[in-house]
Design a protein around this nucleic acid. Structure first.
Lengths: 150, 150
DNA sequence: AAATAATATTTCGTGTACGAAATATTTGAG
DNA sequence: CTCAAATATTTCGTACACGAAATATTATTT
């Protein structure tokens, strides 16, 4: 009943449920302006890190490079982001928002997470503990991956 | 600095990072047997709920019906699951594992989450609190969605 | 300086993930 | 009994999400 496998399964399940819930709720907020959740995140990161490169953007958004390349592609097509080749290192690219991108970023800053605000009714202690435990989990999972590769 | 929007963003970010980490780690465990994370989950659910229908499976796996239909499709093509029309209600389907599906389920039961086991080094209290807080979050987010639709 | 390795990004193929529309069947209203 | 509403599933189009391979450029080796 209470074997380790079950415990892990519970944790995974809990994360999966919340992740899906977040995704669906955020989608509703952002559908009105024609953005996806990830596009919202990427817009935010680029706005806070002008002239960021693709690999760094991928790291900050926890996506692989190929995924990130596609997301940027759609943002460029939508006229929200400019992709330029870097002069110093012509392998790299340099990303920044267009006028329209800045506008949309400012517009969505306040409404992008509106429907998640019920979470703020939780005791501040709970939220703090949550973030702390998450951090511990990340450490446990990433330490092993560096010392015991493959 | 500490405005509500930032607090929410931190939470979302934390979940996103862990979800991506889980996904990547589980992928490595399961790649050896040719399963994806979701296929593993669906196999587990079907094995525990023989003759389950599609909608119910979708609910238990937190996916939409159309996504679930596709996942089942690939499991059927891989010869792990049987999809039959229900005799009582010919609109519904009834899912169960094949011999091969049962074998793979038993095989992956122990190895499917192996690389997540470092999480069990965390204090039992932390894990318990984590699950409790997650549960509170789910309640906060789903209550609103029932009373304030749209 | 030419071949080679390393780095940054894109492209490709497969598999989630969604909502909307299409299909099939059952249930309900008249 | 018939036609419309409801329910269950699939199909379609778009957008993540990954790794592997391809491409382009820079750095290193010899």
């Amino acid at each position: 009943m209470n074997d380790p496998q079950d415990q892990l399964q519970k944790i995974v399940n809990s994360f999966r449920q919340l992740h899906q819930l977040f995704y669906q709720i955020r989608r509703k907020d952002l559908d009105e302006v024609g953005l996806t959740s990830i596009q919202f995140i990427v817009l935010k990161i680029i706005s806070e890190n002008p002239n960021i490169g693709l690999s760094e953007l991928a790291q900050l958004s926890y996506m692989g490079n190929s995924t990130t390349s596609g997301v940027v592609d759609r943002l460029v097509k939508a006229g929200l982001v400019v992709r330029e080749r870097c002069m110093e290192d012509r392998r790299s690219i340099s990303l920044h928002l267009t006028e329209k991108g800045v506008e949309l970023r400012n517009l969505t800053y306040s409404i992008g997470l509106k429907r998640l605000s019920p979470l703020l009714e939780l005791p501040a202690d709970d939220i703090e503990q949550l973030l702390t435990i998450h951090q511990k989990m990340i450490e446990k999972l990433t330490q092993r991956r560096e010392t015991e590769p493959q």
